[in-house]
Design a protein around this nucleic acid. Structure first.
Lengths: 202, 202
DNA sequence: CGACGATACGGACCCCGGGTCCGGATTGCA
DNA sequence: TGCAATCCGGACCCGGGGTCCGTATCGTCG
């Protein structure tokens, strides 16, 4: 319960590590070639320090991720439309997905590292469950959708880090093309198709 | 000149390893807790033998996967509808996806192992590119779809091993429910939506 | 300002798993 | 049966995540 304040050098080192790791991941082609020892070295710090500060590799990744995600999270939770809560569902869903996609595009390596190294399923990571819960709850507000839970998973799956990396990296697909494709997909999924009869606006 | 026939004990050991690995993966909760040494031991064989036969871990996984996949592949390539080539596209797409899903449900651990351990992106694995190419080519035959390539990726993403594992395993979602959801999603995506095509691309 | 307890530092060290190597056993062909 | 090609297998290496503890640093109190 007591928030004991850390020593100053501890805080400084923590930042140094974060910065070094951020940089190393950004440069590296593949996250798995960035080792903990490398990060420690780049931060001018011992491995012990690094592990004391973050617990383990996944912890460090999470910390980095969380930091980068902060602005987006805020825009989603308390921001103006089209991301904020005041947006009508059928408009917010594509906005949310676009935000996720853009985030992953801007943080490819990091997202990749977190997903493929995050100690088990990405689906147990709390940041994933947050996105999923949110997206599902928004989907649920759209009439005519029956399986919002699965739909949320499926839509998020289209923004997975390794897929994004593959398309944007290996296949040089331009950012906006990809966004358009995702938007298109989303539209189709939500879309007023003849097979269900939602379509009505409110 | 290649095709040098292997010695009999070699062949026998190869099968033993395959069987042992198959079994071990099937039992284990998480594939990463199955070690190469374990497999060798279970097969009553030395590690050297194992690595000589399959090159590396990924090679073994691929071999196992390929073997399991064989019947499905045949059904798809030369079988009767709804999987075979003679099926009309808008009917074949859901059939293909359902087949993939079922396969992953029946081989959860194995698929999981292959995806999360397959030496880099799953998107470079040739078995993925095969599914993708096929699905894309079928999608292309459906009028009104513009970005078949991305669509194929997105739809396949909904059947990813770790997602399947999460839903079927952790959340105890019944097999048929999941299939229904996927079918529903597919229908929505293909849905004869006259909502026009915004994305300009080539 | 000096000193002392609490905290952090850091790199040597451990563990574990994938992958290699080579002396010895097997196979198969004549 | 003899011989060469092939294969066997477990001891061994290496690289990376994670730990430990003697030492340096902090910051607080007298």
């Amino acid at each position: 319960m007591p928030e004991r304040k850390p020593r100053q050098d501890a805080a400084r080192n923590r930042k140094a590590v974060l910065a070094a790791a951020d940089d190393l991941f950004a440069r590296s082609d593949s996250p798995e070639e960035v080792t903990m020892a490398d990060i420690a070295a780049a931060a001018g710090v011992g491995k012990g320090t690094l592990f004391r500060a973050f617990g383990d590799r996944a912890g460090l990744l999470r910390a980095l991720y969380e930091a980068r995600l902060e602005p987006v999270r805020e825009a989603v939770e308390t921001g103006p439309p089209p991301l904020g809560p005041a947006t009508p569902p059928h408009q917010r869903v594509p906005a949310l997905l676009d935000a996720v996609l853009c985030f992953k595009l801007d943080n490819r390596r990091l997202a990749l590292a977190l997903e493929e190294d995050g100690s088990g399923s990405p689906y147990q990571a709390e940041h994933y469950t947050r996105w999923h819960r949110l997206l599902r709850s928004v989907l649920e507000q759209i009439p005519g959708l029956t399986d919002s839970d699965y739909l949320a998973h499926a839509l998020l799956a289209a923004t997975r880090a390794d897929l994004v990396e593959h398309l944007a990296g290996r296949e040089r697909l331009p950012r906006d093309t990809m966004r358009a494709h995702l938007a298109h997909l989303t539209a189709r999924v939500l879309g007023s198709g003849p097979l269900t009869a939602p379509a009505t606006e409110n």
